[in-house]
Nucleic acid binder design. Structure first.
Lengths: 191, 191
DNA sequence: ATTATAAAACTAATGATATTAGTTATCGAA
DNA sequence: TTCGATAACTAATATCATTAGTTTTATAAT
């Protein structure tokens, strides 16, 4: 019975690798145990079960994402802050599709830590939006819109929803610019 | 061994009910069999297995959605056709969350029927976009953008991703209008 | 009306999964 | 050196999906 010296971070790294390579659904206690060369009940020494494992993956995903946002968006202002946020967000989802899905599948209510981690990402969007000149309800609506746009794009792209062979990066840039142009138009229209 | 007289449409209606009430994942052969008062192996007389059942749900979802779009968008022109499309799309996703998820989860490539059914929905967006005055690559980009926007909104809304208590219908209308304003701005900017 | 066939339901059995209970051995600290 | 926490284990159970093989019921053909 050789003790393998497994700890939670190592376990999560392995799980994240499965998720990003084979998809979120491929992360099972069986597949993870096999990858780690242990029997699946042994996993319960580190996690409480499959739901708990998925929660940990979501937390790791949110931490990674907000760290990258922090790094890339800092220092940008105006349009650039929205563009930088969008670029980083999509890049994360493309690089870590499994972790990205883990974030989406995590049931946030009731979960203090998960709420906080999600909040840190949201704060980044709000900051970008404020630096862009939007406040109050307008900012809330705008944040919802950009989140919808980015999440929808990322999801459709990954599931192959965009069949036509026309460069997706072009679509993406155009899409964000259209959003920015729309916000400007709406703002001058109201002011 | 009383023959229950089950047929595929009835089976699918029951499955769709489970999906829309308890979520896509709650549709298992076990839960469906229980609802239909038969043993789960008996389901194989009507479907080829769980993947096939899910595929049928996706087909039913796409048929329902495109029928509703057909009805609601017909006759609209310009901004209104985009607005009507968006409204109908979101209404469908809200009324049939399970079917909506079935559509998203269906792996389309290789599947002739599924491709066609999806194509019918896509055609509606293109028609709306053309009636809006966009053609060629611009139309493709615009279709991708509106799809991203709507799918993202619908998904985030259903998973409770919009925490703040600010009317989501307002966000939705504003979001679509912002998109329209953006497209106009980009168009005049280029022309 | 009788019979033959197709198929709709069944039981039984298999393999994968998560999970729990209980066991053993190992590491680290007293 | 010993003791206790714990990381790994085995064994067992419950829930799935799925396959094989059986029975019975409609329905169509004679």
């Amino acid at each position: 019975m050789p003790r393998i010296g497994l700890d939670l971070p190592t376990l999560l790294t392995a799980a994240a690798e499965i998720a990003d390579r084979e998809g979120f659904e491929a992360v099972t206690l069986a597949s993870l145990a096999q990858k780690l060369q242990i029997r699946s009940p042994s996993l319960y020494n580190h996690i409480a079960g499959l739901p708990d494992l998925r929660r940990h993956l979501a937390l790791r995903g949110l931490a990674t994402l907000s760290a990258q946002l922090e790094q890339e968006v800092a220092g940008c202002t105006g349009d650039d802050s929205i563009r930088a946020f969008s670029r980083t967000y999509v890049a994360f989802a493309r690089t870590h599709p499994g972790l990205y899905e883990a974030i989406q599948r995590a049931p946030a209510p009731d979960d203090e830590l998960l709420q906080q981690a999600g909040g840190r990402v949201l704060d980044q969007v709000y900051r970008a939006m404020t630096s862009y000149g939007l406040e109050g309800d307008a900012a809330v609506h705008a944040v919802r819109a950009i989140r919808s746009l980015l999440h929808g794009f990322v999801t459709l792209e990954r599931q192959g929803g965009f069949g036509i062979p026309l460069d997706l990066d072009v679509t993406f840039r155009l899409m964000v610019d259209t959003f920015l142009a729309g916000v400007k138009a709406m703002r001058t229209g109201e002011g």
